[in-house]
Design a protein around this nucleic acid. Structure first.
Lengths: 338, 338
DNA sequence: TTGTATGCGTTATCAA
DNA sequence: TTGATAACGCATACAA
């Protein structure tokens, strides 16, 4: 029987137990850092395990344990395919989440492309592929997220914080960010504003709403909306160009990301419109290249350095049965040339 | 006993079998699309499963099957932390890999931050956390990769293709890319060249080598190397500035990425050096913003649209026992303003 | 502190 | 085509 298993050529916990002359549970305890094992035995077991290149079978472990210690991270990849590169900002988030999960020894399952319907999410959770979800960006899936919340699927969402959403969200204060942009335009006495972005995304819509609130503080201000569906560089640029070609001449532009700002600057330049002379521009995210673009881009900064950690923390609290509150992170206006 | 299991409140395959009045193996077959099950039974089983919200436990599945149907994808995140954003190029690769794996219903385990030593990789594979690895960028881990190859760990690597490496690599022809940049500089009669990048990365070193080969075709050309250790925007920019401050005045720059090119342009501009008048510049990757930067950036394009698919294919072939060959993808010079 | 016995939910083997 | 039975490799309840 023990011979039969040799076909796999990989030691099991049984083998290690036999070699170390202890029982299997003792090996299990020693390897999982339990205190219920004497130091000499633990040392012997670890030595034997190392010597034989033994590694606990994670699938057996996940099967047996209540938790799978796996978190599914959901990301909008489609806007990054086919040369359509969005703002690298989202990847800083991913990196932060990855790091925070590593610290806790939790696996990161990067969600498959096909994860779309509520059923897909529920099945992944039911099949014990992941204990919960971290969603980077609400995107267009707000209805799905609400339903998942109703079904008590553990999750933490980066994006807009909405009181009635039912799930735990972490995100910058998009509305305040929008106001900051608006206040700057007011200060500069700009009258003809335009917001560039897809307001079907709640976080984007809030930025627009904040800008709109500021706009209402002056009767002279007109606020327009240039809606971008696919928020990729090339589409943003062509939409901005069309906008100008239709005769519009805004003197203030608030774009949904720094990358989008670059697209706007490029498009406007083709019509000989240069900031800050011909118009003011505010971006969002404060990615490093924004500071060095020509002209350097005025933008809204959100503190993402701890975002990953917070998201992971919030999810873990839910797994422990708590109902953590959403968090709104502060935003800051970074004034540069535009 | 069946009652006892109810604590989990989730149906198991046993439950579905009982409800559909068939045996457990039949349910298994029906769900996995085996042909050894009559259509009426399959239909009944699927219906019962759907009705009860049943989803196969993936961990039990992975435990029992030979394959785990999981691939670990390794990525250098560190250069994307703390505001240090590298070229978004690598994420297009990640998106491609994610999509290709999804198509095959294979899970993508995004590798933990701590995955560093050979032992870490081997353990992950031994513990059946993944069937194999896809490494995005050799980075500084070439020695590790070679040892993994010696140990017959299945993997596919995006990066430099080296005959003697022992593993399957997929990557653009970095040497040819370097030559293309050099040939352009020769055409433009540039005499004082500098390469910007970390040549400890094999793929970067090859670009340098290609450039060097072209440099040797003219006795008048001097080639310098500006080494960047952490290939982030801010470090590239400050290193470029220091370079100029030390009195150097190159008339041709070949930078390791488009993002790095932007950093170089910004740094040089501070010294009133503007391309193409004061120097020529060639970047790498051809990310969309490169076309719209001011000035627009001449760059080397590598075809990454199929890179993800190829990487996944190569890995799967190894899992099937084959020894697939490495692939070198063509590179192309995209001439723009710089 | 250690060991015995059992079950986790599936798929593979084999016989029918 | 179907079913009975035996693994897969581990962690936990419980007894010692």
């Amino acid at each position: 029987m023990a011979e039969k298993r040799r076909r796999a050529m990989r030691p099991t916990m049984d083998d290690i137990a036999r070699l170390a002359q202890v029982s299997k549970p003792t090996v299990s305890r020693a390897l999982s850092g339990s205190r219920l094992v004497s130091e000499d035995k633990r040392a012997r077991i670890l030595e034997v395990a190392r010597e034989h290149g033994y590694a606990v079978n994670r699938n057996a472990q996940k099967l047996r344990q209540v938790r799978t210690n796996t978190v599914a991270v959901v990301l909008d990849f489609h806007s990054h395919r086919h040369g359509a590169i969005g703002d690298p900002f989202i990847y800083e988030l991913l990196a932060g989440v990855s790091e925070a999960l590593s610290v806790r020894d939790v696996d990161l399952l990067l969600s498959p492309a096909g994860l779309e319907s509520v059923g897909d999410y529920v099945d992944l959770h039911r099949s014990r592929g992941a204990d919960g979800f971290i969603i980077l960006g609400q995107g267009m899936r707000e209805p799905i997220l609400r339903e998942l919340a109703r079904k008590d699927i553990p999750m933490a969402v980066w994006g807009a914080v909405m009181a009635e959403s039912g799930y735990c969200a972490v995100g910058s204060d998009n509305f305040a960010g929008g106001r900051l942009a608006g206040e700057r335009f007011l200060q500069l006495h700009r009258k003809s504003w335009v917001f560039v972005g897809n307001i079907a995304h709640e976080e984007i819509r809030l930025r627009y709403a904040g800008l709109a609130e500021a706009a209402r503080e002056s009767t002279e201000v007109e606020l327009d909306l240039l809606r971008i569906d696919m928020m990729a560089f090339s589409e943003t640029m062509s939409k901005a160009r069309e906008y100008l070609q239709s005769g519009k001449r805004p003197d203030a532009v608030f774009a949904f990301s720094d990358t989008a700002s670059m697209a706007v600057i490029s498009a406007f330049r083709q019509e000989r419109l240069i900031p800050p002379h011909d118009y003011s521009l505010v971006g969002y995210n404060n990615i490093p290249p924004a500071a060095h673009f020509s002209p350097s881009i005025t933008t809204i900064e959100q503190d993402t350095s701890i975002a990953g950690t917070i998201l992971v923390e919030k999810l873990m609290q839910q797994l422990d049965g708590a109902r953590p509150k959403s968090v709104t992170l502060p935003t800051k206006l970074i004034v540069r040339e535009t």
